[in-house]
Write a protein that binds this DNA or RNA. Structure first.
Lengths: 237, 237
DNA sequence: TCCTTAATAGTCGTGATGACTATAAACAGC
DNA sequence: GCTGTTTATAGTCATCACGACTATTAAGGA
């Protein structure tokens, strides 16, 4: 089936969809846009758009991410291909194959309107009605992947600002996994993993709250966790 | 960027590529086809082909898998989406976006020529010259994924026939990971994981070789391994 | 009958981990 | 200043998983 000139083929539209997660106010939130037109007018949808002729899907995803978050520099953000959705009827208008990406970002300011008519907003995960198209499925897949990735990668730091406390890092885990973790054990585990976090040398401390000030850490250079940081209770969400 | 009628979009060709692995003769082998025409005439390539208008990529992948392996029933085989490759110049002729899939199959008979002109063959992983297109990259990604998945899923049984010994299962791990495992420890670990394997009740045993006959097992119902079966030496291949 | 081969059983020490307890350093109120 | 509350950080301890071994069992071959 590789003779290109021998077989006819259907042209497809190719898009990217973005599941952009953040943790704010102690809950997992997702970046969504409100659809202005049919189909699914008025519904929330994942941000995304067409892959342009000269772009790879990855490039298109990063471009869309910049547009939707309003950030000038998205090069530091974690962006990862999730999977591709290609059911023939996933878009009632035409045949659209969509490459979905997952992005993890720290607590950003509310997105400005972007160049787009549709406004983007942070909404709590699960706190929306049904999304447009097959975006509920995409979002669920993305959420599951994020939860799993926290176990065996250092990805949780992507949710944090450049400097953070171990308490904040633990909150990321607890929010994404929906479970409480033992503080001393979490601390021991994180610090025992080389390259996960590194202390900010100048005895910098965080003020503002009550209680003893916490030491600040930066994301380390490691990417994988060995051994993994398994969530309690055998299996995933 | 979701106004479909407002923005022009480029039509893409969408294909699937298959990285089909098996373990035979103590080595990891891949199903490849020889290209008959330019570009890359004479080179080996991953089997694959166009997604037809009425198909999902998954359906197309399963159809291609059946065609290439010559198996009538591929419904039991493990087929999993790997990722999508969309670099604009990955095919010199046209814009082709390819959804890659990974399949794990037991030791099958040599593939017959199929309906295709190009013949398919099992070749040892890494034992081929450079593949056509970006298939070296796809194959390397697939291989890495397979190795990683053996750690935390029960996927190794997909490489085995319906009934197998623990020694055979261990060989799968050793071949894919390229490391030797301690036999008693491997055994203890596998048997301690509920649902990984289940013994074939009729004291069935395997004959043929020297030494004490081994008990036979079937694949269990579990899909994930908790805790994971980590390969020796911190990190992956 | 021995030797070889391979499967299976069991032992032992180390290290990671879960569950706790204890101390330290900040602030709020009195 | 003293006390209590809050949160970070430092330990303790028992359990369990795991790597490294040794031992036993059951076959075939010489």
């Amino acid at each position: 089936m590789r003779g290109y000139d021998k077989y006819a083929f259907e042209p497809f539209a190719v898009t990217v969809d973005l599941a952009v997660f953040t943790v704010r106010a102690g809950e997992l939130q997702v970046l969504l846009v409100e659809r202005g037109q049919e189909p699914y007018a008025g519904r929330w949808a994942l941000p995304g758009g067409f892959v342009l002729p000269h772009e790879s899907a990855e490039t298109a995803a990063r471009r869309e991410l910049a547009e939707e978050t309003g950030l000038a520099d998205v090069s530091g953000l974690h962006l990862e291909q999730l999977r591709t959705y290609s059911e023939p009827d996933r878009d009632p208008r035409m045949r659209v194959v969509s490459v979905a990406y997952t992005a993890l970002v720290p607590d950003l300011p509310e997105p400005r309107g972007g160049g787009d008519a549709a406004q983007a907003r942070w909404l709590p995960y699960g706190g929306t009605g049904p999304l447009a198209f097959d975006h509920d499925r995409i979002l669920a897949d993305a959420r599951e992947r994020v939860g799993a990735k926290l176990e065996y990668t250092c990805l949780a730091t992507s949710f944090c600002p450049s400097e953070f406390t171990l308490g904040e890092l633990q909150q990321i885990y607890e929010t994404v996994w929906g479970t409480a973790l033992d503080r001393p054990n979490f601390r021991r585990k994180v610090l025992a993993t080389p390259g996960f976090v590194e202390p900010v040398p100048g005895a910098a401390r965080l003020t503002g709250g009550r209680g003893k000030p916490a030491a600040l850490y930066r994301a380390g250079t490691a990417t994988t966790l060995h051994p993994p940081l398994l969530r309690p209770e055998g299996r995933p969400s």
